[in-house]
């Protein structure tokens, strides 16, 4: 059997060393090797967005990235968005206030994706938010309160 690969990953500013299969996906390594389970795996084919993370700032589905490809890159996951309830990102606060989450399984991916959007476009229209988040499936909310939460967070962030 092929030997496992040794990789060093930087996740939310922390360095992790681990072994992985050469064909193991990044989401699998994050969840099952590093036990960082905030990133969810909903489909393994890049269709649901539950595993959304940032890789050197790019928004990616971590199920479509091999863990070995992430060597030396900066990974940002939901666990890094706030280190305490007192320091929530405005998106996290607004999702709580406006009920932008129901079951919560899609929430980490949607928060990561929405944060990437607001960094690029601090004042998105409803349509822009809807198209940006079109890669993140939610089955509970019908998206209404998700969109409103992102709008409210954007407004708060613009006020600074």
């Amino acid at each position: 059997m092929a030997k496992r690969s040794h990789i060093t990953l930087s996740v939310n500013g922390d360095e992790y060393e681990t072994l992985c299969e050469p064909d193991q996906s990044l989401v699998d390594v994050l969840r099952n090797e590093l036990e960082l389970t905030g990133t969810k795996e909903g489909c393994s084919t890049g269709d649901c967005g539950a595993c959304s993370i940032r890789l050197d700032g790019d928004l990616v589905c971590s199920c479509l990235v091999l863990a070995v490809e992430a060597e030396g890159k900066e990974i940002e996951t939901i666990e890094g968005m706030a280190t305490s309830p007192e320091e929530l990102h405005p998106l996290q606060s607004k999702f709580l206030e406006i009920n932008g989450l129901q079951c919560g399984i899609c929430t980490p991916g949607i928060l990561i994706a929405a944060k990437a959007l607001l960094e690029k476009n601090p004042d998105p229209t409803e349509t822009e938010i809807r198209f940006w988040l079109a890669g993140n499936l939610c089955r509970c909310t019908g998206y209404d309160k998700i969109i409103r939460s992102v709008q409210a967070a954007a407004e708060e962030m613009r006020k600074g």
């Binding site: 929530l88 996290q92 999702f95 919560g104």
Partner: peptide, 15 residues
């Protein structure tokens, strides 16, 4: 249960 869910700490079936 919201805080754990927006901070990635809630434990679902696979977690």
């Amino acid at each position: 249960d919201g805080l754990d869910k927006v901070m990635g700490r809630a434990k679902f079936g696979a977690d």
